[in-house]
């Protein structure tokens, strides 16, 4: 009765059947690492203290790049809903005896699945490139779970927001405008790319409240340290907890808005 299964499988089919999106998805992680890794590599000169003990900058920014990849894909999660409305497909869903929320949640889940694939490719890419990712202190199953949880929570937070917006937006350019407005602030007012020590005071203060920072810091902590100390574990717990609370609230919002407000 829910329609979630067939709708999510439709989204994924549309994604993996598009050779361009598949190819760009494969190339993008290498671009990101190569560009960010080289552009900001001078930061390494400030020494390992500034990089929280990371052996190189790639290892340091991995948490940031993973989070940003999740964020950017999530920002576009509502676009397909707007096109479904424009192309008339939404009309077919709305006359079917399915839950209205399944239309929106299919986009949320499909985007999350895409993000998961991108995360896998990016980690592989980071390990493959020269002077890339190094797990100096090992990488446990728990670390992997924390890493995935952090990216997934960021994905759920932003897919919820942007699919909910798309519930009532009828023009693609409107949502593109919103995406352009928020993507760079979310990226730069966060600890995704730079250590707090290199940021202006006010920026660093603001970045503390950005969920992008929470995810980036949580991943960074497990990637650099491997096995965590009690205090590190506490910090990671706080970050993930914050992400989980935010994700829950926003998923509930997406549910209620889509059940009641979605129309052609």
């Amino acid at each position: 009765m829910s329609g979630l299964g067939p709708l999510t499988s439709r989204e994924l089919k549309k994604w993996y059947r598009n050779p361009v999106s598949l190819l760009t998805g494969l190339i993008q992680p290498f671009f990101w690492l190569a560009l960010f890794g080289s552009a900001f590599s001078k930061i390494s000169a400030f020494g390992p203290t500034l990089l929280d003990g990371a052996p190189n900058y790639i290892t340091y920014i991995l948490g940031g790049v993973l989070t940003i990849i999740g964020l950017f894909t999530a920002l576009f999660s509502g676009v397909n809903l707007i096109f479904d409305r424009r192309l008339g497909v939404l009309g077919r869903f709305l006359i079917a005896p399915i839950r209205r929320s399944s239309i929106v949640f299919s986009k949320i889940f499909a985007s999350s699945a895409r993000i998961l694939v991108q995360v896998g490719i990016l980690i592989l890419a980071a390990l493959l490139i020269p002077n890339g990712l190094e797990f100096k202190h090992g990488f446990t199953v728990l670390d992997a779970l924390i890493l995935i949880a952090a990216v997934m929570l960021v994905a759920l937070i932003f897919t919820s927001i942007f699919t909910t917006l798309a519930v009532r937006i009828t023009r693609p350019d409107t949502i593109f405008g919103v995406i352009n407005l928020v993507n760079l602030p979310l990226l730069f007012v966060s600890y995704a790319m730079f250590p707090p020590g290199l940021m202006a005071g006010w920026l660093s203060d603001a970045a503390k409240y950005n969920p992008v920072s929470w995810s980036a810091e949580a991943i960074r902590t497990v990637v650099i340290n491997g096995t965590l100390t009690a205090s590190q574990m506490h910090s990671v717990g706080v970050w993930l907890g914050g992400l989980a609370i935010l994700a829950t609230i926003l998923l509930l919002m997406a549910y209620f808005v889509s059940e009641n407000e979605i129309r052609e």
Binding site: R10, K13, K14, R17, G88, I95
Partner: peptide, 15 residues
Amino acid sequence: VPQDLTTDEDLSGFE
């Protein structure tokens, strides 16, 4: 059968 077209162009007829 609504006035507008409602089938998905990116899927086959059967799908």
